[in-house]
Design a protein around this nucleic acid. Structure first.
Lengths: 194, 194
DNA sequence: CCGGAACGATAACATATGTTATCAAGTTCA
DNA sequence: TGAACTTGATAACATATGTTATCGTTCCGG
């Protein structure tokens, strides 16, 4: 969450660097669970290499909520901040190199940061953007057909299609893996590639 | 957004009361536009009486994103904070009594508030909850069938079903109004009421 | 008080999507 | 290396959902 705003708020860099030493480096294989559904989040997670998804279990099959890649950070935000059980699991997709920053340090970082004069503006701008992201996810799914959503993924976030197994993408799009396969073959017919 | 946290952070009361005089009271008929898609949000909106929806236009027909009722506050958050065009329109559903607090006062309120020692915690807890709300909207739509979503609405937010015209609810659920009508008639057959 | 708009139900048809099953090609790991 | 697992495609069938059209009712403004 914070990492993405380093450019807009250069002051973040100093804080970030200060807490780097407290991070724990982890090399995780594929399908390694970084946080389990129902547990309380204890770390902020930063991805140096590899990719990660968040998902929840629903009657046996799981539904993917979001994908994360290199140089992105995440946590189960509500669980982390409000000390409640996490709604979803965080799991590596590929073998990955992960940095874990324990909650106590993050909270200390936030507390120090809150003495900066423009902290209010910064935190509001950050959270407004995050919120907009999730609203857009919702908007897209009530506005677009699965086929349109897949094409949006292809054009705007092609790395997801390239690196993530198809059934994860299917559940993220809100369709069965069989239907996503149909969508792909339909698109392939319309637009032959030489 | 802030109003809901008055109980958890009693200090908010003092700030809220302090800025009450700067609000403008408006009596709006049904279908009155409080903020238009594409414009930049200039007010925080508080609903004293009536109800309101946010929606966006999509090729002529509109898609409802969220409903708000008495004693709830809202703004087009990203537009308000980041000074960007609003993604959606805010419109009354019923004739309503609305209070508008101009942006400058809200920003001043936030700035004062940021000197409170637990401001960081407060703002993080608030935003984590809001974020969770929107994630849950997304999760529900990739997990549940429209019929299940309608039943959830019936059991957990029955006031929406009672007060809001059906086609608004249909677009919020992500189905056509015809299909929502089908869902209702199907449920009525299964569970006859005497 | 009238006429039109808004709201909601229903039918008929077309299309989209889910489910289950099968097959093939990689990939992993003992 | 071989067996098990993962990934992906496809077929066949059942169900869900969209679209268009029609009808009746209610509501509201001139």
């Amino acid at each position: 969450m914070f990492f993405h705003f380093k450019d807009r708020f250069p002051k973040l860099n100093a804080y970030w660097d200060k807490y780097l030493p407290f991070q724990k480096r982890v090399e995780a294989p594929a399908k390694a669970v970084l946080l389990e559904e129902g547990k309380i989040s204890q770390h902020y997670i930063f991805i140096e290499k590899g990719c990660v998804r968040t998902f929840f279990n629903n009657n046996g099959d799981d539904k993917t909520v979001q994908f994360f890649f290199e140089n992105e950070g995440l946590s189960s935000f509500d669980s982390f901040i409000n000390n409640v059980p996490s709604t979803f699991t965080i799991e590596t997709i590929e073998p990955s190199v992960i940095y874990l920053l324990p909650k106590q340090h993050v909270l200390r970082l936030m507390d120090e940061l809150s003495h900066e004069p423009d902290f209010a503006q910064m935190i509001l701008q950050m959270t407004a953007r995050r919120q907009m992201h999730y609203i857009n996810e919702f908007v897209s799914i009530i506005r677009d057909t699965p086929e349109q959503r897949y094409q949006l993924l292809l054009s705007e976030r092609p790395h997801i299609v390239q690196r993530v197994p198809q059934h994860y993408i299917a559940s993220y799009l809100g369709v069965s893996k069989v239907h996503l396969s149909r969508i792909k073959s339909k698109l392939a017919k319309g637009k032959p590639h030489f």
